[in-house]
Amino acid sequence: MARHKTTSAAGMTRRERYDAQQRRRSLIVAASSTAIVLLAIVLLVPMAPGWEKVQKSFFNGAVLAKSFPKLLDAFLINVMIFAWSAPAIAVLGLLIALARDATAPALFPLRIFGAAFTDIFRGVPVILTVYLIGFGIPGLGLPRPWNSPYIWGSLALILTYSAYVAEIFRSGIDSVHHSQRAAALSLGLSDRQVMRDVVLPQAIRNVVPSQMNMLIALQKDVSLLSFIGPVEIFRQAGVFKSLLANFTPYVGAAIIFLAVTIPATRYADHLLARQRKERR
């Protein structure tokens, strides 16, 4: 009996032909439904009675052009605060995580401290910590430059975020299979060496995507420092709002944030997806 030939002239098997047809069909459906929704928004929203007013005060091209360069300048301050806080958070977070898992009896106080630290700073809203530290400590009458809100505001962020980052590191340490520990111990390594050389490198790698999300959140929360002084982008937008009696600068600030956070979020998602694939 002759073998059935399922390959067509184009060199595709019937399965490939079928799959290609399915792909084309779902593409067409997705494209047309998206077009309908967009069209509805574009047509219906301007029909709302207040649209003209909203457009003038939130989407004003002239105001945007005028405020945008200054907003970008102010954003540099956000970037600066972020840039010195992030490494401090990574280090402190890791230390807290290690302190919480310390088993030696002499280190018990460290363990208690670690637990208290994470409980307190995860339990208090960031803005409250920023207020308490940012106003409280300079209130001790420190001389310049030690009364700068940049220092104490950053410290508030560092403390809060370290608490979260420490918990993520701990989950990463737990995620390393106990057989890795057994293998390392069987070679004669000490507990400390096992942690440093075998467990931590794997743990850190496992939590990179989650920590990326913390970085993105931190980038946004830097704006909370505006409440205690620094004229960063959110504060700058507020200045423009008062000056020009228009909300467009806030939209400008949002655009600048999104320009940074969307690529970063996409990248974190990409890392997560890759990790899921590797685990399978």
């Binding site: 057989s179 890795q180 057994a182 293998a183 390392a184 069987s186 050389d197 075998v198 794997q202």
Partner: peptide
């Protein structure tokens, strides 16, 4: 060990 347990 049975599952090699090399450090990946």
């Amino acid at each position: 060990f049975q599952n090699y347990n090399l450090f990946p």
